[in-house]
Amino acid sequence: PTPPYLKWAESLHSLLDDQDGIHLFRTFLGQEDRADMLDFWFACSGFRKLDSREGSEEKKVKLAKAIYRKYILDNGGIVSRQIKAATKSFIRDCVLKLHVDPAMFEQAQTEIQTLMEGNSYPLFLKSDVYLEYT
């Protein structure tokens, strides 16, 4: 079978579908103080899944607020700096109006994913962290 680290080079999704891959990519991002991008990406996925799995409305609101406060509100944070202003104000409005929707972080997640695919991910595949592992 193909070793996992070769699969990681196929696509960002292959990498993020493997625990070791996630761990190594997170280490790499951490070196550049960008690990929040990955955490945010997973937080968005988890938030979307919450809808069908469990969760009172109260819990969803609390989680949406937590994601907003941690990653969006702080303008100096890596996630906040990378997301478009319009996307941020859309999320802000959802939180302020307590209008939480499973898809409310989708656009922001896509923006972060596009950045990772175009930048951090190809750099990761050339990084010492990855090469030493292989």
Binding site: P4, L16, D17, D18, Q19, I22, D39, F42, A43, C44, S45, G46, F47, K49, L50, R53, K59, K62, L63, K65, A66, I67, R69, K70
Partner: peptide, 20 residues
């Protein structure tokens, strides 16, 4: 009731793949 940080951490973990 979980704190916001706990809730966030659980949410992140829930989205990650399970061990091979």
């Amino acid at each position: 009731m979980d704190s916001e940080d706990d809730l966030l951490q659980k949410c992140i973990t829930s989205a990650m793949p399970k061990q091979r």
